[in-house]
Design a protein around this nucleic acid. Structure first.
Lengths: 97, 97
DNA sequence: CGGCATCCTTTTTGATACTG
DNA sequence: CAGTATCAAAAAGGATGCCG
């Protein structure tokens, strides 16, 4: 799990979907500097561990929608806590300089 | 923070110290495959963010003891929760194969 | 639009030897 | 004992071009 969330962009993609960016392009545009390769990989990982679900409409041009599963929401909350914790930590580390 | 915990051995070292391995060599022996370089680096990071405290006895041969700070304990708990969560996730992912 | 394959760059990790 | 310095290896990330 730690290996997972520690991957660059992983949490970003998760949070991004949570905020309603449910299409490949939407996520890509929202995150700006993520590459196709990485976004694709992270989506697969998220799906592999049932953190998101992938809905393919089988249309041309392709249309695919992503959404968080309950587990995804749960993880998102945990990560949120880590981020809060992180903020206080980093704040103090900065103040100490 | 995520960048931090995602580094290889980072959480291992944290947990290891929590379990009472308070010396460089003890940690190294307990984790077996960690290199000096990495252990040294992780200890510095942990100290930098006040997750552990480093007590140097200024003896020869050198004697240094590490222990978790309150923040370290807090992080350790959060990581514990992530691991629990992870276990159920991975279990299910395995069961699905 | 939603990707994958290829190739290249950057970052991280690790092995070894050495020091106070 | 508790590290550091140096260098080599591996992993991760990214740019580009292409496809159904």
């Amino acid at each position: 799990m730690l290996d997972l969330v520690s991957k660059r962009w992983f949490s970003d993609v998760l949070f991004c979907i949570q905020e309603g960016n449910n299409r490949f392009k939407l996520i890509k545009d929202d995150l700006k500097y993520i590459s196709d390769t990485i976004l694709s990989d992270r989506l697969k990982l998220l799906e592999k561990y049932s953190l998101i679900s992938r809905m393919d409409f089988d249309e041309i041009p392709p249309k695919v929608e992503y959404s968080l599963t309950d587990k995804g929401e749960e993880l998102s909350e945990l990560l949120g806590k880590m981020c809060e914790f992180s903020d206080t930590l980093m704040g103090e580390a900065l103040a100490r300089r």
